[in-house]
Amino acid sequence: MGSIHLKQVTKDFGDVSVIKPIDLEIKDGEFIVFVGPSGCGKSTLLRMIAGLEDTTSGTIEIDGQDATTTPPAKRGLAMVFQSYALYPHMSVRNNIAFPLKRAKINDDIIEEKIASVAKTLNLTDYLDRKPGQLSGGQRQRVAIGRAIVRQPSAFLFDEPLSNLDASLRVNMRLEISELHKSLNTTMVYVTHDQVEAMTMADRIAVFNGGIIEQVGSPLELYNNPANRFVAGFIGSPKINFIDIEPSTIDGTCSLGIRPEHIEISTTGGQWAGKIGVIEHLGSETFLHVHVDGHDTFTVKTSGDCPFKYGDEIYLSPQKNKLLHFDATGKTLPNIA
């Protein structure tokens, strides 16, 4: 069991309100990812769930029980920190055993559990090393091992992969997803990384300035962002925005079009532009096109793109994929 229910939760640091009232229901077994720009309060909310920060107002329910003032040790949650936060003076074995010992579990069972966790995470050969003698990826695995060994009702991850290099990050990402599938335990995962959010999440919560802009499955957010902020935040490369004269029909002030929803033509189209930087990724190509009277457009096209720097081309949006935003940034129904 591991459902977490936030009701009108807020957090102030002195006079600064870091979390505006937030409501969020995290279902048992769900993998939910918090994303958002730096300083928007993701870590703070995670730490509030963990009990490492006080909740200024509102209630946090874990498994239906009010846990707002429960100390972290009693919440039955496990956390994996960005810095791993391993106990440097203990061997890997003792790091993993630590939560079990605190729970006064008998030594034989501890041994058994360590062995099985070590096997799952490929740590068997390192059990007697100190964290200082491990690589970043191994440390990360120990941190995860320490979290899973006591079978918490939910896992909290705060940017657990951001200290790893790119290829390791991909591996660990898969391992964590795998783990989620096999354990079927609730995971709350904070990240900066688009790809992590999109690939791992059952649902993504997009944060901005202490509020949640939108919660939904990755594709929901991608295809139907609730507002301009979410549209701009989800998707890589970023969506293109076009400011227009406010429409008299529905009040549209700006449009958004994702890079893969723009058609290219050498003969004619809605916007005339000149190709700037071209990024070849092999399987696909990103063109940065300077359009008169607008910002630079990013356009995604196939890997075998024939254009070169300075070429004049025409761009047209796929009309049914255009997103319409009103003056406040809210998404309007696409009437096209």
């Binding site: 040790a73 949650l77 810095s83 391993l86 440097p88 003076h89 630590f98 605190r102």
Partner: peptide, 28 residues
């Protein structure tokens, strides 16, 4: 790092255990 102590707290250590088993050995 504060996070190491917080980790202990998450792992179910009381403040006393946190100081005794984590802080003091590290700061020895």
């Amino acid at each position: 790092p504060n996070e190491v102590l917080e980790a202990a707290r998450m792992d179910g250590a009381s403040i006393g255990e946190e100081i005794l088993y984590v802080l003091l050995p590290i700061a020895l």
